[in-house]
Amino acid sequence: MEAAAFYSFSILAIISALFILFSKNLIYGAFALFLTFLGVAALYVLAGADFLAVTQIMVYVGGILVLMIFGIMLTQKASKDTTSTTPNRVEVLLSREFWGFLTGTGFFIFLGYIILDSQFKMTGDIISSKSTIRTIGVELMTSHLLPFEIAAILLLVALIGAAYLALNRNPAQ
């Protein structure tokens, strides 16, 4: 049962990722990325990371993807050969396509060779089905307190910087 869920969600994630690669329309690609994120969140749940799965859905699907769709819509360019059946078209050069496929498949074969060749000896107990929220909270507030604070400052800096860059459209005036 668990194996069936794992393989179906992995196939969902990989097929929608391939759809982004082959789709010419960027909006369709963004919606396929939504499916990929959901599949990855399901893989997190199957690996025992319930808190991270919910965080993934809230941050990626609720925040980043909506932001990207806004970005696609705000950078719309009506070129001469755009018709109503071909919106948001991304032209792909043949040489780029060739190098992209070559790099992608080559990297996948390289990584797969390394993964299948290595023998991982895991000594710890496998995670039980209890919730991970308590452990994550305690670890964040004790041994990982400095990275937590640095992440907070990073988010504040990113917020101010993004607001400045997006609001102040013409600093020369």
């Binding site: 994630a13 990989i14 690669l21 992209g100 496929f101 990297f107 990584l111």
Partner: peptide
């Protein structure tokens, strides 16, 4: 690894 390679190709 498959998702990473597809992301790289994209």
């Amino acid at each position: 690894a498959a998702l990473f390679s597809i992301g790289l190709a994209i």
